[in-house]
């Protein structure tokens, strides 16, 4: 009854709360871990030491190159119709403003369509997007492409409503992308509250003027590492089940939820299995990715280096959407593999978490999934997750040790059983 032993140890036994306490120690010590920052490299070195001290196998760092962008000093002040200092967060990879900033009238739009319809009005203006939140996957396009679309019609800068399910006046940062041949303009996220207020002001015909200052700057790529630790397989060591989370974060809060939780339940999964003296037939490999927030940069280089062994990967797992109380496992794979995973999840009956949903995914494992490797991720409270996501509220206070215990138990049972079954998961 390996599954029960893992669950008891993780949720009721001496290992309960360990993932939370380990995470708190790291994020309290280091803080947030932006790609290219010293904080991130310090965190990697700390984790390298932690994993060696934990006695895991083949602990090593795989070198990669990652983007190095810094936020600098930034501010946005509404000058008309009244003075109002706005909370903003520059978006990742944005350029800065001139030292004196950009002072311009605002055009408020609620969609790309409206921007196109009112294109003549956008020239020489700061475009404010007040797009409604539908789902993160759907709404994030405004954050990612908002600057490019506005630049195409002559805007000077963009201020984009935070992509968030709930807001207490806290901006949500994130990556954005420029496009070759389109002028680069500064872009930042604003709070849901300010976006809605400006929308109301505009609908009453009020003229809105904002002064935007951003010291953002991009530097040459920096050196970093993906952090790897294993429990080497006893029978088929060349075959792999990959368990992962990412160690980098945005420069907000402590980077506890995104993705300290995912990284530390992945470590916890290996620790639990080791504590029980278990060794699966296949190798259990944990990877803590670097520079996920800039688009899976570390993970892509890992995939390029290791894809030659793709036929030996039975399952790739990433936890990167919260470690609140899981409601089930998200899975992508063949029908045959899915019914096997449904059997595996029955082992979590003691925790009453047995569902297998579709849509197993993760920025860092999607390369493998798109190439045909079965993939899994955790399904939990996404409304709560996106309330804290990429904000200064992403701290240990948003985390729950008991829920992390359950998430770690689920992660460990799934990883161990799939790694120990006689056959790999079948593919299409």
């Amino acid at each position: 009854d390996v599954a029960k032993a893992i669950i008891n140890l993780a949720v009721y036994g001496k290992s309960q709360n360990r993932s939370y306490e380990r995470l708190a120690l790291l994020v309290d010590t280091v803080g947030p871990r932006l790609s290219g920052s010293k904080n991130l490299e310090k965190a990697i070195q700390i984790m390298y030491q932690n994993l060696q001290e934990n006695g895991l196998d083949n602990v090593h760092l795989e070198p990669v190159k990652i983007p190095h962008w810094e936020r600098g000093e930034e501010s946005a002040v509404m000058l008309q119709p009244r003075i109002h200092k706005m909370a903003i967060l520059g978006l990742g990879s944005s350029i800065g403003t001139p030292p004196e900033g950009i002072t311009a009238e605002v055009l408020v739009v609620t969609s790309f369509n409206e921007l196109q319809q009112r294109a003549p009005e956008a020239k020489g203006k700061i475009v404010v997007y007040n797009q409604p939140y539908v789902t993160y996957a759907e709404t994030v396009q405004y954050r990612v492409q908002g600057a490019v679309e506005a630049a195409k019609v002559g805007a000077l800068a963009t201020l984009i409503r935070s992509v968030a399910s709930f807001s207490i006046y806290s901006p949500h940062t994130g990556i954005q992308e420029y496009q070759d041949g389109v002028p680069k303009i500064p872009t930042a996220c604003i709070t849901v509250e300010d976006a809605e207020m400006m929308s109301r002001m505009a609908s009453h015909g009020l003229k809105i003027v904002i002064q935007l200052k951003m010291g953002a700057k991009t530097y040459p790529d920096a050196d970093s590492f993906n952090t790897v630790a294993e429990i080497t397989g006893s029978k088929y060591p060349e075959q792999v089940v990959l368990v992962s989370g990412h160690l980098d974060s945005w420069d907000v809060g402590q980077g506890a939820l995104d993705d300290g939780g995912g990284a530390f339940i992945s470590w916890e999964a290996l620790s639990l299995i080791k504590d029980l003296g278990l060794r699966p037939k296949r190798t259990l490999r944990m990877v803590l990715w670097t520079a996920e927030e800039q688009g899976g940069i570390g993970a892509y280089q890992y995939y390029q280096l290791h894809k030659v062994n793709i036929s030996n990967y039975s399952l790739v797992m990433e936890s990167d959407s919260g470690t609140f109380l899981p409601t089930g496992l998200q899975f992508t794979g063949s029908t045959k593999a899915r019914v096997i995973m449904e059997e595996v999840m029955k082992l979590l009956q003691p925790l009453n978490i047995t569902q297998v949903f579709s849509g197993g995914e993760g920025t860092d494992i999607n390369f493998w999934i798109q190439a045909g490797v079965p993939g899994a991720s955790i399904c939990d409270d996404l409304y709560k997750y996106f309330s804290f996501h990429h904000t200064n509220g992403d701290t240990m206070t948003a985390m729950n040790p008991k829920e992390m215990n359950v998430a770690a138990a689920l992660w460990a049972v799934v990883a161990f059983v799939v790694a120990d079954m006689e056959e790999m998961l079948p593919r299409e």
Partner: peptide, 24 residues
């Protein structure tokens, strides 16, 4: 070596089901 490289399982689903149940 019961590995699954060419897409053909060596085992029936019932066997796999029993194998998984043994972990519970």
């Amino acid at each position: 070596k019961a590995i699954y490289k060419n897409g053909i399982s060596q085992r029936t689903f019932e066997e796999i089901k029993e194998e998984i149940a043994s972990y519970g």
